[in-house]
């Protein structure tokens, strides 16, 4: 190996990088911004409380309330099931056959903590075994497991990815290859191009999502309890919203590095904060406000509603309308800012 060559290659590689301002920003600026944002969001403090549903049992509820790390929610039986299915609580406790039954899906984040905390709370109370022996049950009913929670979230995430990679990245590629410029000198109108482009891409998201639903149903009996039409429209509206966001993100970028950075900026918060992996409805303050602002939060919530609960078109309508409005705003801005060369 010739050191002279290694040094020359290293030097030219470094120079290329150093002379690309967007690469520089996304390498040095963006991680600092992220560190600051996450640092503010996750300030050191007491460990978060683990929510648990207690079904119609005041004694048990009082017992558990003594454990400061448990957030006890007294609920009716079906409400507790729903809360468990939707990930709003980590476990549910109910009285059954003279004992206490603690149900949780151990694959769910926090489930193990909930079980341990409940056991600790009951141990701390000498009278507890007398009140009831504790029995653990694995939550394995279709519609209530972590996998049932996960599949709708993955569909939402997939819609986001399709908008960003399929549309945003692709558009910038066309700009870099001067194809957009060539199109701009034809009698094709901007709106015709953008809508045609969106249509071509959005058609893909419906079968993509159907494949995920089918896959979940086939392998794990993941249910689809609501209206299929509502599900279809939700997927289409979600696809459109993220496609609009993709076009907006790609409307100015002149390099693939630039659009890659912007896509990260848009995608990362949604990956973390929109309830794909865990329930985020307990966020408070600025974090809550920010998560509610992100379209993926609404897509995920509505998809879970329509898959895990027998919801109809009317229930999903506000979200569908909201997503369409979001898409319209994105596209209007994109049309205004769009760079053809």
């Amino acid at each position: 190996m010739r050191l002279r060559v290694v040094v020359a290659v290293a030097r030219s590689t470094f120079r290329e990088f150093w002379r690309s301002p967007d690469a520089l920003f996304w390498t040095y600026g963006f991680p600092l911004v992220m560190a600051l944002a996450l640092g503010l969001a996750f300030q050191p403090g007491p460990p978060p409380q683990v929510p648990i549903a207690v079904v119609a049992d005041a004694d048990a509820a009082a017992l558990l309330a003594a454990e400061p790390r448990l957030l006890v929610e007294p609920l009716a039986a079906d409400a507790a099931d729903r809360a468990l299915a939707r990930g709003r609580v980590a476990a549910s406790l109910r009285r059954q056959d003279g004992g206490l039954v603690l149900r949780a899906d151990p694959t769910r984040p926090d489930a193990e903590s909930a079980v341990l905390l409940v056991e600790r709370a009951l141990r701390a109370e000498p009278a507890a075994p007398a009140i009831a022996p504790l029995r653990r049950e694995v939550e394995d009913r279709p519609g209530s497991r972590y996998i049932d929670f996960l599949i709708p979230g993955l569909i939402g995430l997939n819609l986001l990815g399709a908008g960003m990679w399929g549309i945003g990245f692709n558009l910038v590629q066309m700009r870099v290859g001067k194809l957009l410029r060539r199109l701009a000198v034809t009698p094709m109108r901007r709106s015709e191009f953008l809508f045609g482009y969106l249509l071509g891409r959005c058609l893909l998201v419906v079968p993509e999502s159907a494949a995920l639903v089918g896959f979940g149903a086939l392998l794990w009996d993941v249910p689809f309890r609501g209206s299929l039409l509502a599900g279809l429209l939700l997927v289409a509206a979600g696809g459109l919203a993220f496609a609009g966001l993709g076009v907006l993100v790609a409307s100015r970028a002149r390099t693939l590095e630039g659009v890659g950075g912007l896509m990260n900026l848009v995608q990362l918060p949604m990956w973390l904060l929109c309830g794909t992996w865990f329930d985020t409805s307990r966020f408070t303050g600025a974090l809550r406000w920010f998560a509610d602002l992100l379209p993926l939060t609404h897509v995920n919530r509505a998809l879970r509603d329509v898959m895990l609960e027998p919801q109809g078109l009317l229930d999903a309508a506000p979200t569908i309308a909201g997503l369409c409005a979001f898409a319209a705003v994105c596209l209007a801005l994109a049309l205004r800012w769009f760079r053809w060369q």
């Binding site: 290859g177 194809l179 410029r181 060539r182 000198v185 034809t186």
Partner: peptide, 18 residues
């Protein structure tokens, strides 16, 4: 502009078609 563009044919120095 659109009417004008309909009467022009353009071959740029470089275009990468799909």
């Amino acid at each position: 502009d659109d009417a004008l563009r309909a009467r022009l044919g353009v071959c740029l120095q470089e275009t990468h078609f799909q």
